[in-house]
Amino acid sequence: MRPRTRAIVFLVAAAGVVVLLAWGLAGLPRFGAYHGVYGREINAHGVHQRHATNVVNTIVFDYRGFDTVGEEFILFAAVIGVPLLLRHQRDESDVSGHDWAEGRSAPGTSDAVRVATLGLIAPSVLLGLYTVAHGQLTPGGGFQGGAVLVAPALFVYLAGRFLMLRSVHPMHALDFGEGTGAAGFVVVGLVGLVAGAAYLSNAFPKGHVGSVLSGGDLPIINVSVGLEVAAGLTLVLYEFLEQTLLVRRR
């Protein structure tokens, strides 16, 4: 196709897209306009029904709990897939024996990075645990808190060396944490069945609105999802580092 023909085809297509886009945008509701009947219903009854002030958490782990079980296993499958793909292949080797910048020593981790990350390890652990534990009360929950708990692992890696991370994060504990976390959610759901109601319906005492142990099974689910996400994501990070190191060593 000649450039001239190509330009004409593009201009016609682009004009079409612009018209369609403008037409669609013109029909959008105003910014912040909300037509969701379902949302209003949950806002009106959510706190009363589940004694949990973070309605988002109630939706994710109760009203839409079954969806979330599925989502959790998407992450679970992804985490299983990473070690599988990154496993140490038999014929794999690396060429890092060749020095591409001879006579120039690689700069080590700067003291600034080291001090800053060392100082951030403890606060990030605390923030992660807080986010998990208060999931049913304030913004946050198992997924968010679990993801925050990956940060300390990154900080340990940045502050020290990979080998140090290796001694802090034993593989078996991570595997165990990931499995237990994923299974915990499913088991909590089964408790609802055993109690004679639907899967994932609450069978635990609901407690007082606003206290840490309120919301029935929500805190238990938050902790188990937090465990799964934290262990799973750390495992992925660990696998990447481990694999690079193993290949390089040969």
Binding site: V56, N57, P139, G140, A147, V148, A151, L154
Partner: peptide, 22 residues
């Protein structure tokens, strides 16, 4: 804020870290 919290960790830390390692 719930979504924001996830985005901070996933979008600005975890995902870039994985990209760097890759």
């Amino acid at each position: 804020p719930d979504v924001s919290l996830s985005e901070i960790v996933v979008g600005s830390a975890a995902l870039p870290a994985m990209f760097l390692l890759t």
